[in-house]
Design a protein around this nucleic acid. Structure first.
Lengths: 346, 346
DNA sequence: TGACGAAATTGGAACGTTCCAATTATGAAA
DNA sequence: TTTCATAATTGGAACGTTCCAATTTCGTCA
């Protein structure tokens, strides 16, 4: 069972043509006669030929590979992002190299280097916390198109696609204020990230706009995870002047906040309003259904991939900074349903 | 800014040695003198050389790529599986091609073909529903090591790593019976899959073993998702003789079941016992914390990767069928905490 | 029949690396 | 000094494809 690799030369022999003709058939050229094309295809089938993309890439100095590196695949937001990318990338005939950095700069350096060595023709990156412009420099001046998603890096000369965190947070807080809340907390997330910064500013600006006095005590950072949400809400409820509502850094935190609330015998939605951020797939089916700022991770992945593909095709593309708009999806966790019921009864 | 590719020849010139020597340095050969090694490395750094793995693969007829294809990356079980694979694969100096089939056979065919063309040296596959032996045949007889994870394919001549679904389900149901439950449902999952089959048999066998009369009405299939769990429990609660406990097909279903229960003003854990399967990352922090059969997806990914790597190294490896043992993690959703409290009080 | 343009086919070089066999440098022993 | 083993280095072929320029085949028209 020693498998000799079948090459174009083998099938050229079998079909009685030259290797050049076989190559032409392989790339679907219209130059080749119908009859010979059929012969060649038959030989390909018979010998079980497998195209060697590596050899082709070597000759053409370009690959059909795009890389995607995310900072936490365990977070379903990023998993969905990857799925979105995959969908468009596949149907464009590319294949996806996916790597997970687990938020580690060192790992990120390694995987990016590895992708370069494999000759990816473009890269979609959700950078790990603490990534600097210098980390991307080698990439950009070797001319590989890069699209940053989710997190931007100030000063980096590459395209980016981030959601409108500021506007989303404002919309959420305005909604809470309209429902009569005054003590509104901002819970979860690492304060040293750009995303936190943007969402928190949106939160603040909405408060200022309506003349509500905020307080730094109501801004409580934590890991951007479910567990982080639990601890953040616990801390919030220890405050002398307790909040009655919270905008959470993301949906994972929001779920944690709901958990923490229930642990204190408070029903999220009824006794305390919770709004998340991202609209992950579980947000809709959770109980209570989570009111959240919809970011559509899968759609973002698709748009990022399309942007990247465009740049690859263009050869040399101007960096483009897209901020993807965002909308508040009102469900039950902010008390909307309850309010509505009350209105009907009144 | 026209970037000429820097090759070994360029750095050979710069360092005043031959390309062969450069190649030797690149692969860390001990044959080369310390001084020249230093010179070469300096040149590599100065010229910004990037190793061309494609060219190397072509010459060596082997790559450092392993492929992983999963059927649903959106499900965090598989995302974690991929993370586990990634971890060991990376540290073995390989890189991971990840593709998502979204449970579509056609897509699976495409991605597997694509991976072959890219010369992956091994493949980890969680096959889409309905995958047949024939789908894997071309792979196995071209000698590419394949490891099936999560789902097995009867008659396929490849290694597999699946969890002990039967034993896990039995343990869960026994636990429920010990707590005094008699009407136990099996909720969620597609009945035409091997995994469903195995878990359901475990459920049945535990019932039989203890002489409890089961009923097919208590076995309710659904999509293996949170939404599926909601509908399954709704259906279960319409039964004349309602169950008081349920083993769920997986954790996603279990969460859905909890949601559905709460929608009927029943508290999971207190009013109705719920056990999941998989032990995804959220199971621990959910409220109530989910009692579940721990499968450790990340660990499974690691073991699968190790198995694959072993086979790649061995060149020609015997198919190995590993069933990975599994343990019941008792948390709150099955009422354990409540029971314990009661015992203490008594 | 010859000529001609279009259609189809072809051989060889090239892509960037590794491997092999061969060569040269080095140093110790005679 | 010569000799020899060992350490370092090296040129060229090879991997499987695509591209280019060149060639052959074909049908049509004069």
């Amino acid at each position: 069972m020693v498998k000799e690799r079948v090459t174009v030369i083998d099938i050229a022999h079998a079909a009685g043509v030259s290797k050049s003709t076989v190559s032409l058939v392989l790339q679907g050229s219209s130059l080749v006669n119908e009859a010979t094309r059929a012969k060649v295809n038959a030989a390909i089938r018979d010998l079980g030929y497998v195209y060697n993309r590596g050899a082709a890439n070597l000759r053409q100095a370009k690959s059909k590979i795009i890389g995607i590196v995310v900072n936490d695949l365990t977070n379903s937001f990023f998993a969905e992002l990857a799925v979105g990318v995959d969908a468009v990338v596949q149907s464009a005939g590319f294949v996806q190299f996916l790597a997970n950095t687990g938020e580690k700069i060192e790992r990120q350096r390694e995987v990016v280097a590895s992708m370069r060595e494999h000759g990816v023709s473009g890269l979609i990156v959700s950078p790990a916390r603490g990534t600097e412009v210098a980390d991307l420099a080698p990439l950009v001046d070797s001319g590989i198109p890069v699209v940053l998603v989710v997190r931007d890096i100030a000063g980096a000369d590459v395209s980016s696609l981030i959601s409108d965190n500021h506007a989303g947070a404002m919309a959420a807080v305005r909604h809470l204020i309209e429902r009569g809340h005054q003590r509104i907390a901002f819970l979860g997330g690492f304060p040293d990230t750009a995303v936190f910064e943007a969402r928190m500013r949106g939160y603040r600006d909405a408060l200022i706009e309506t003349g509500i006095a905020g307080s730094d005590a109501l801004i409580i950072g934590s890991a951007p995870s479910r567990a982080g949400g639990v601890t953040a809400v616990e801390q919030a409820m220890m405050l002398a002047d307790r909040p009655t509502a919270a905008l959470c850094f993301n949906d994972a935190v929001a779920f944690g906040v709901c958990d923490g609330l229930r642990a204190r015998r408070l029903e999220p939605g009824a006794d305390f309003a919770v709004i998340g951020f991202d609209d992950v797939i579980e947000a809709k089916t959770a109980v209570p259904a989570l009111t959240t700022v919809s970011v559509d991770p899968q759609g973002m992945g698709q748009r990022a991939a399309e942007l990247l593909l465009k740049q690859i095709k263009a050869g040399k593309a101007e960096p483009e900074a897209i901020v993807s708009s965002v909308r508040l999806v009102v469900r039950q966790s902010c008390g909307a349903a309850v309010e509505r019921k009350r209105e009907v009864l009144a």
